[in-house]
């Protein structure tokens, strides 16, 4: 119970800090790019007064006292009303996010799960046969590969695979000649477009999981309960998985939770390199176009997702690790 209370407190605390931060930033900056932006809005067409109001509250274009603005801000946020996008006028920010979200969730989500599973399994293998050939090569190669900028690697992958050999499409989420509908033509096109970005993400993020799992597993293998398991004459595979890996994976679960939360932020760099219309791409474009309402909305959604994912895993921990939920004795 105490654990649960603490987790809920952390959830609320984090959300509060992040949202307040988000409230303060536009109000603290010198000059007012937001006001200029709103002036430009009028060149685009009729703007709905409600939406205008929402934008003003979110960005702090107001003469009301700060505490009042703060309350209004919370009111907007709790209703997911972030105003209208400047770039994609007259669409609302919420609409734009809803459009981009599925692409990111499916592609980056799948990649995150795949790379976690692959990396963790290989990490178990590397630790079990530590010092062996696989361990030595994988560990050294991955340690070094973590020094390479992801986008650099992705650019070259795109160049060779798509541009030179035309094996896979170069950019976008589906062929420009079709429109997004749920039929086979669209799905197969979307899949073909997803392969290369997916591969680059999986390859580049797997190493972290592998090394992390390997190191945890190696320290777990030194524990007394592993020695005892061996002395008990248990089968090696049982010891490797039920005793060692099961314990070693615990610290990585938190990392996985964070990664799952980060899924919503998409992969800013990947989506930029492949012009993939997900959340990351949306954020980068919003910033590029000084589309403050969109930027703020996207950032809030991202933070919300990360914090929630973290919270959910904290709750799941109760089932994964019996020590968490009850500290006392029976």
């Amino acid at each position: 119970m105490r654990y649960l209370t603490r987790r809920v407190a952390f959830l609320i605390g984090t959300l509060w800090v992040a949202l307040t931060f988000n409230f303060l930033i536009p109000r603290m900056m010198p000059g007012s790019p937001a006001e200029t932006m709103i002036a430009n809005f009028h060149g685009k067409g009729q703007i709905n007064p409600n939406a205008l109001h929402a934008i003003q509250i979110m960005l702090g274009i107001s003469t009301a006292p700060l505490w009042k603005q703060y309350l209004q801000y919370w009111g907007q946020v709790l209703q997911f009303k972030f105003g209208i996008s400047y770039t994609y006028f007259p669409y609302t920010v919420t609409h734009m996010i809803a459009q981009a979200l599925p692409y990111t969730l499916i592609l980056v989500g799948a990649c995150t799960v795949i790379s976690f599973v692959l990396g963790t399994s290989l990490g178990i293998a590397a630790a079990w046969w530590r010092g062996g050939r696989f361990d030595a090569t994988a560990t050294t190669a991955l340690n070094f590969s973590s020094a390479f900028p992801y986008f650099w690697f992705a650019l070259f992958a795109a160049y060779w695979v798509s541009f030179r050999f035309h094996w896979l499409p170069l950019s976008g989420a589906f062929s420009s000649s079709i429109s997004p509908m749920f039929n086979w033509t669209f799905v197969s096109s979307a899949l073909r477009h997803a392969i290369l970005p997916a591969l680059t993400i999986v390859i580049s993020s797997m190493g972290g999981w592998l090394l992390g799992m390997r190191n945890n597993m190696i320290s777990t293998l030194r524990e007394d309960y592993i020695v005892l398991a061996e002395a008990k004459g248990l089968r090696a595979s049982w010891i490797a998985f039920r005793y060692a890996a099961r314990n070693a994976i615990l610290p990585n679960i938190t990392g996985f939770a964070m990664a799952l939360g980060f899924v919503v932020s998409g992969s800013l760099v990947m989506e930029t390199v492949f012009a993939y219309p997900g959340i990351g791409y949306l954020l980068v474009n919003a910033v590029g176009n000084e589309d403050y309402p969109l930027m703020q909305g996207v950032f809030l959604i991202i933070v919300l997702a990360v914090v929630m994912a973290n919270f959910v895993v904290d709750l799941l921990y109760v089932f994964i690790d019996p020590r968490v939920s009850n500290e006392g004795r029976v």
Partner: peptide, 15 residues
Amino acid sequence: MGTTENVAPDRRTLT
């Protein structure tokens, strides 16, 4: 490769 977005697991190996 450093995706920076997944800083968490990468950093861990470097500390």
